[in-house]
Simulated scan of single mutants.
Amino acid sequence: MDRASLDALLPAARRFQAEGGGGASCCPPPAPAGCPRPGPAAPRPAPRSPPLTPRELQIARLAAQGLTNRDIADRLFLGPRTVAHHHYRAYPKLDITSRTELTTVL
């Protein structure tokens, strides 16, 4: 929008605001006298990660036992990249970043 258009809108915006802004208020009306003020909201529990799928859990348990992706893939009739993808999806859910941490969380 160019400067001339903004200058033309300014008086209209001021008039709109002076007339109550269309009747809507940005703030709720004050509480009547004698009404208690609302206290702070109760703390919310930390959001939980979605649970592992059965396959992610199965693969994570095998990895925690020390099996390689190739070993897990052979045992479960999957490809090693599929196994790696399941690890990739499971680690954030378990809040870990490496394979060595699997033994502590499982």
Rank of each mutant, 00 (worst) to 15 (best):
A4N: 07
A4H: 01
S5D: 12
D7R: 03
A8I: 01
A8S: 06
A8K: 04
L9P: 00
P11Q: 07
P11I: 07
A13Q: 03
R14S: 02
R14N: 04
R15K: 07
G20R: 01
G21V: 07
G22D: 09
G23V: 10
G23P: 06
A24P: 00
C27D: 12
C27I: 11
P30N: 13
P30M: 13
A31V: 11
A33K: 10
A33L: 09
G34F: 08
P36E: 15
G39H: 13
P40E: 15
A41Q: 14
A41N: 11
A42W: 06
R44E: 15
R44W: 11
P45I: 14
S49C: 07
P50S: 15
T53Q: 05
T53V: 12
P54Y: 11
E56H: 03
L62W: 07
A63Y: 01
A64T: 00
Q65S: 09
G66D: 13
L67E: 12
L67Q: 11
R70W: 07
R70S: 08
I72F: 03
R75C: 07
F77M: 05
G79Q: 13
T82S: 05
A84K: 04
H85Q: 09
H87C: 12
Y88V: 04
R89G: 06
A90K: 04
Y91D: 14
P92T: 14
L94W: 01
L94G: 04
D95L: 03
I96E: 06
R99I: 10
E101S: 08
E101D: 09
T103M: 04
T103Y: 00
T104S: 02
L106E: 11
